[in-house]
Amino acid sequence: MKVAVASGKGGTGKTLISTALALSIDYVRFLDLDVEEPNADIFLKPEIRERIPYALPVPNINLNRCTYCGECAKACEFGAIFVGPKSISVFEKLCHGCASCKLACPENAITEKPYEIGEISIGKKGTIEYIQGFLKLTEALATPIIRHMKREYGNVSGNLIIDAPPGTSCPFVQSISDTDFVILVTEPTPFGLSDLKIAVNVARDMKLNFGVIINRSDIGSPKIKKEIKENGIPILMEIPFDRRIAEGYSKGIPLIETLPDYRECMKSLWNEIGGRL
């Protein structure tokens, strides 16, 4: 079963819940796809055995062949190539690695070379196989690493848990695509609700199964819970605010160590999700 933990609004408790889930069920692969700010390792404390650089294929211009005709720049939808009368520049940070330029070049002057934008770490914690994506600082594009990780490590026959990035745009969409179930974590505030509604719309558009966990469920407004229900959004679990959770979180202590009762809750949640499918 492949389950993504996502949210829309940041800081609602994605990593708290995804790591608690992983630690409660045995034999699971865990993908941290919040590649801009990956944090799951703080809680899972895996032993990393391998770090693999991730590079995008970007254009390599053969200046002996280039006639500065500008066809490559015209074919680039991302503005990553600029061609002057006698010059050509490639802006690697804007390149999506689609090879449109290479296909458009009438002189066969473009090959591809790797351009490193991040790193993938692979490790283990007990029976959890941990894989983290990491975007190099000053690089703009998170989506290519997420897409690559989904392709390379996302196809498992066993259990997969994905810690998704916040937001509702491309990185979120790529992270939750092809999963069996999406857990959306929210908090009962107007901010949480506003972002949850957007995330729910995306999940519905993508025809994905989903449900909601309300974190810090007793802080905020009961009206919000009512509104979630009225929108036909299934509520999977509520986690009331507890200072011990916040303090444990601040030190990188997993939820199921701070409050061990949550181990059984997480196990039943996992089984319940399995039952819903």
Partner: peptide
């Protein structure tokens, strides 16, 4: 920044970005 390990880890990245 919030005083959590995640908060600190992440704020350092933004600080470095801002510095860049």
């Amino acid at each position: 920044v919030e005083p959590t390990l995640s908060g600190i880890h992440d704020i350092i990245r933004v600080f470095e970005l801002s510095k860049y």
